[in-house]
């Protein structure tokens, strides 16, 4: 006979809830087990004292019923305990509860600070992601920028790589990485994303301009892999002591800026004031 079985069932044994065979087993065990016998005595005492509990005199249960009825009728969803808890507490008391009130006050202050700083600064806020080093192996940036500046990247790209059996659509279906994105920009231009499409056949890269002509892409070239500009004439310009190159073709403008050892590029439709803002953005990266 196992010790554990007896110990587990001692209460059931005392309460005569066990089948005769189990009772017999337990009694047999109790004859030879002092500790189980002591345990049984403890439990028996506990059971005996539990019978001493008396219920208090309940005052007015009619009032309790009236209250239940009132709450049950007055609650929109009959008897919804949560709603009742809400009703029990005065609405204003809940609203001016210290913790919610404090949280609301903090949120309002933060919102105010954010609004004020936005109104005051109107600065660029952006995240910058370095181009993957892998990008720099054997790509023909110059070609692609030519195509982009010409305003029809898809056609130019496809024609160029036709011989290598890599179509623009094939390239487009490959992995896309978000390289950079701006969260707040002036109304004049907005950088949305730079997309990289990797193609297994020709290892090409595409910086895809979004369709909205007011969008400008800014990206940073890895060291030692300067962008070439094909046959387009470069215009060398100085702005606020900063030298940059500009190419203008149709509605597109390409800016190239050398900062320390990195080359930054901006591509898109932009006017003179946009250019100043873009250069400011690049120099503060």
């Amino acid at each position: 006979m196992k010790h554990g079985f007896t110990q587990k069932n001692l209460s059931a044994y005392l309460d005569a809830e066990l089948s005769p065979d189990k009772v017999q087993k337990i009694e047999l065990h109790l004859q030879s087990c002092e500790s189980c016998l002591r345990e049984l005595q403890e439990i028996r005492s506990g059971k005996a004292v539990a019978t001493c509990f008396e219920n208090p005199d309940w005052q007015d249960t009619e009032a309790l019923w009236q209250n239940i009825q009132r709450l049950n009728i007055s609650t929109p969803e009959k008897g919804d305990v949560k709603n009742l808890e809400m009703k029990r507490t005065n609405l204003w008391q809940r609203l001016i509860h210290p913790r919610p009130a404090f949280a609301i006050a903090v949120l309002l202050i933060l919102f105010g600070i954010n609004l004020f700083s936005n109104l005051k600064q109107k600065k660029f806020q952006y995240q910058r992601v370095q181009l993957d080093q892998e990008l720099s192996y054997g790509f023909d940036y110059g070609l692609y920028l030519d195509a982009l500046v010409a305003g029809s990247p898809a056609i130019e790209f496809e024609r160029r790589y036709e011989s290598q059996q890599a179509s623009y659509e094939q390239a487009r279906s490959q992995t896309t990485f978000r390289l950079a994105s701006f969260t707040h920009m002036p109304k004049t231009f907005q950088l949305r994303e730079v997309r990289l499409l990797k193609n297994a056949c020709c290892r090409s890269v595409q910086f895809s301009c979004l369709e909205n002509s007011r969008e400008v892409i800014i990206f940073q070239q890895p060291q030692g892999h300067p962008v070439t500009f094909g046959n387009y004439p470069l215009e060398r310009i100085e702005l606020n002591g900063q030298m940059y190159h500009r190419i203008k073709t149709g509605k597109w403008t390409v800016l190239s800026l050398q900062l320390k050892e990195s080359q930054f590029m901006a591509i898109g439709e932009m006017n003179e004031s946009d250019i100043a803002a873009i250069i400011f953005a690049i120099t503060t990266i």
């Binding site: 587990k8 209460s11 059931a12 309460d15 345990e39 403890e42 439990i43 506990g46 059971k47 539990a50």
Partner: peptide, 12 residues
């Protein structure tokens, strides 16, 4: 049954 064991012993 096993919870009763424990409850009764603790009460005592």
């Amino acid at each position: 049954s096993s919870r009763l064991n424990r409850g009764r012993k603790e009460l005592k």
